[in-house]
Design a protein around this nucleic acid. Structure first.
Lengths: 216, 216
DNA sequence: GGGAATATTCCC
DNA sequence: GGGAATATTCCC
């Protein structure tokens, strides 16, 4: 494989950490993409520096690096980055796919003149912050905010730690079933109300037409 | 790149071909995975045959091939297939990922003794049928039939003993949350419909009163 | 086998 | 930039 020289880690997010596609508690491990990108910067893009030259002397030769204070990173040479660096860490050599991932994780391009990217939680020497970076979700909430009533409970139930004991699971389970019953009852009410409304509407229409006919 | 020797085609499905995740008209181009797998079979797994030997003589050496009548195909040597063939056509060398794709596209493993797979529309000499093969979709309709889960599933979930395996609890839990989301979406629909109905009704009443007033 | 998360591609 | 389809991985 192209990236056989790169350590592949099994860094999955625990089941309870991402529930229904929404990460509610911080996972222990950063996303593979973030770790690879961080490592790539530590390793100078996976390409050796010129022997004996200091960082400053090498600056113009760098493919990719942190900025001076380590709060952003810069892809100095997109072509070499794509051809040499990307395939060492990822399963492709497309700069645009790399950019797509950066966007997915909320990085911002902060310069129109060069390929410089920034994320608050992605900084030199702060590997521990990587696990706080999450993928952007399609935030088009499927149901409107007035249904958020249960979201507090969501937070509560989902904050249970992964290795919590069975008792908590059973409790959460019980609550979910109770909630399901309530939702089903709400739906039953809606159905009844819809029926009444439609009935009323049709009566009203009939009535109205009779009245108009009589008045004419 | 690992597969730089393989022709990559831009075969996207047109917008109208897949509407809301549901394929409505047959796309012009087969899925990349299907085309690659078909080509891989035509090309003997991308590995050269022994010179001068007939197909029959080579049979025991084949990595992958169609069966005798070309209605199924067989991976004769999963190890060589993974190491040599897969990376030539795909971005990985994992046999299980290949299997996962076969399942996604509806192939069936038809032998317990060897890695033989079948799909009605995947046959030797029938490249034109490939475009009729589609990915399986998650068929969980977003709006389930009303309250269908109330009795049977209640009974089922409640029959699970309290001290059952944690895995089952987690699974049940996941299902309950999924169900909750579906119910919440149903309620959102109802609310929207109610709003429309009320709006319509009030317009109708206004209209009616004006009309009656004028006639009087 | 298949659900679901992440990765890659394609397109607007 | 980001939506959405397909691909790959991971897990049950």
């Amino acid at each position: 494989m192209a990236d056989s020289n790169v350590l592949e880690l099994n860094i999955g997010v625990g089941k309870l950490a991402s529930q229904g596609g929404q990460s509610l508690v911080r996972p222990r491990c950063p996303a593979p993409f973030l770790l690879k990108t961080y490592n790539l910067l530590e390793e100078g893009g996976g390409v050796l520096d010129v022997d004996g030259a200091s960082d400053e002397e090498n600056e113009s030769k760098k493919i990719v690096s942190w900025n001076v204070d380590g709060t952003t990173f810069v892809v100095w040479s997109p072509d070499e980055f794509s051809d040499l660096t990307l395939p060492r860490y990822f399963k492709h050599n497309n700069f645009s796919s790399f950019i797509r991932q950066l966007n997915t994780y909320g990085f911002k391009k902060i310069s129109s003149k060069r390929w410089e990217f920034k994320h608050e939680k992605f900084q030199r020497g702060c590997k521990h912050l990587l696990s706080e970076i999450t993928r952007k979700k399609c935030e088009t909430s499927v149901f409107p905010s007035y249904l958020k009533s249960s979201s507090e409970e969501n937070a509560m139930t989902n904050s249970i730690e992964e290795n919590s004991d069975q008792r908590l699971l059973i409790e959460e389970n019980k609550n979910l079933k109770k909630e399901r019953l309530e939702l089903q009852m709400q739906i039953a009410e809606f159905k009844a109300m819809e029926m009444k409304l439609l009935e009323y509407l049709s009566q009203f229409v009939d009535n109205h037409q009779n009245k108009v006919r009589r008045l004419c």
